[in-house]
Structure formats: structure tokens, C-alpha cells
Nucleic acid binder design. Structure first.
Lengths: 139, 139
DNA sequence: GTACGTGCAAAGATTTTGCATCGAT
DNA sequence: ATCGATGCAAAATCTTTGCACGTAC
């Protein structure tokens, strides 16, 4: 399923701003804030970035990731593999990880509470392996 | 450990605004937005609410919960038991749940990735048991 | 008395909205 | 030609900051 097809299924058009937001997200190794996205989308009005993200969220093209008190955005399945993050509060890096055990747990909790899960959020914040070894952090 | 003691340990004072924000959070069954909190804290300036939440976050008196694209706040341990939420996208209710299996998983992932976890976020969004049975939702 | 905190007000940033125009089909 | 989408500008919100005054200790 391409983004073009997905949009057309909903009578929406693949316009230049939408293409640019999508490309910016695809090329980023880490989740981005709205400001990050707006800055990287030259010649695209900020309002269009907002409107595009709402549209993309509704079509599940993007997903929101909360880290600390801020929201970040990244492509969702099937555009990138499902994953979660190890966010280092020292170096700020967000390392993606696969967590099949978590996906199982979500299924279990869904059955246990008779709750129809639409999506789940899971993020870890802490100190990454590298930063644990830096002088700066040991002080 | 009372909030008063916790503040004093850091040379901070238990003032009226701080007491009010704490009480509002304690009395709420669900996580609140900053606006919710500000509205419920009569006679407290909005700026003080912001400053109080920053302070409370640093002392781990509150924790932030991301639901959808918004941030909510609630008391953290040890002021209320550690828990996560089932957030119903239909009726908007956030039901707290205990998830010992998740806590174990966090420990496992921490060891596996040699990542020193400081905090973890986990939320489920979907349709609650009640709403699955309403006519409105079945349409 | 001495900081720390507050309220107030202003500034700064973010997000939403209306509308005329543009562009994809 | 039609209808959705955009850019622009204005409005509405949200968040931060400086400073004089209050108040907890």
C-alpha cells in the first residue's frame, strides 16, 4: 500500500505538502517534533503541516510518541516496522527496539480486561549504555 | 513521606499554590490537563501552576501521561499506586490498571539492552467493555 | 530578616481558523 | 468544472519570563 493509494481510498489527494511531510518523516532516523518537521519542509506553510499531520494521524500514516513532556511524530506501520524506543535522557537519543514480548502482553491485557485495543504506547526513559560509561555522567 | 517533607528536603516551601495543585490532583480520579488543573485552582495564577508542575515533576511528585496527542498529569508514586491506563476513545474514560507483567518486562528489557531505566510509559487506547455494547458504537 | 515564591503583565510560541486562490482529477 | 487543499493573515491559546511585592521559615 503506497501513501498515494491510501489517500485516494479516502478521496484525498497526494499534494506537494503532504509528500514533503511524508519524505521528511521517512528520512529521519528519530521521531520529530512538529517544529522539526515544519523547519525541514521548505516552502510549506506551518498551517499545512498541522493539517497534514491530523490527516496522517487519522489514516494511521503517522503515530505520536510522547517523550518527557513533548510529543514527537514518526511514520507508523506499514511504512516502518512496529517498534518502541529507549530514550536516553542524557544524550537525547531515541533508539528503536523490537519488543515481541510487549505485543503479547498487550493481547493478554486486552482479553483480560475485555478492552478492544486500537493502539498502544510504550517508551522507556533512562540512561543508555554509552552514557553510563562517560566521565561526564559518572561525576 | 509527605509532600511537605519532600519539599523541605530540597529547600522548597509548601505554599498555598503548591498545596492546591497537589489537592486537585489527589482528588481527581483521572489524569488532568494543565488547563483542567488551572481551572480547578481558584485564586492561583496560571504561571504558578506551570512552575509548580515543573517543580513537582523534578521531585517525582507528578508524572505525565500521554493520551492521543495530549499530555495529562497525575500524582506519581508514592502518592498513588503505580499503574497504567485503558483509555477509551469512545467515552474518553481513563481506567487505571495494575500490570505486574509489564513491570517485569521493563526489568527484562533493561537488562537485555543494558539500559538504566528511569521511568516507563505504557498506555492502551481502544474501546472499553461498556462502549463495545452500546448501540451508538455498533452502528 | 532572608531567600524563595507569587501575582501580574508582557512577550514569545504554538495552534487554529476564515477565506480567496490554486490545482488535481 | 468541481471540490479539495493551500497559503496567508488574523485570532485564539498556550507557555515563558521579568520584576516588584508577599510570605514561609
Amino acid at each position: 500500500m503506497t501513501i498515494d493509494e491510501l489517500l485516494k481510498q479516502h478521496n484525498l489527494r497526494l499534494t506537494k505538502p503532504r509528500q514533503q511531510v511524508f519524505d521528511v518523516l521517512r528520512q529521519s532516523a528519530v521521531p520529530l517534533t512538529i517544529s522539526d518537521i515544519a523547519k525541514k519542509c521548505k516552502n510549506v506553510d506551518r498551517a499545512s503541516v498541522y493539517r497534514t499531520l491530523v490527516t496522517f494521524d487519522q489514516l494511521h500514516i503517522v503515530s505520536a510518541v510522547a517523550i518527557g513532556w513533548k510529543s514527537y511524530y514518526e511514520l507508523a506501520e506499514p511504512f516502518i516496522p512496529h517498534h518502541h524506543h529507549l530514550y536516553c535522557i542524557h544524550c537525547q537519543n531515541a533508539e528503536p527496539i523490537q519488543t515481541p514480548e510487549l505485543e503479547q502482553l498487550v493481547g493478554y491485557l486486552s482479553r483480560k480486561h475485555q478492552f478492544a485495543v486500537v493502539k498502544h504506547h510504550f517508551e522507556l526513559e533512562g540512561i543508555c549504555k554509552n552514557c553510563q560509561q562517560t566521565k561526564q555522567y559518572k561525576k
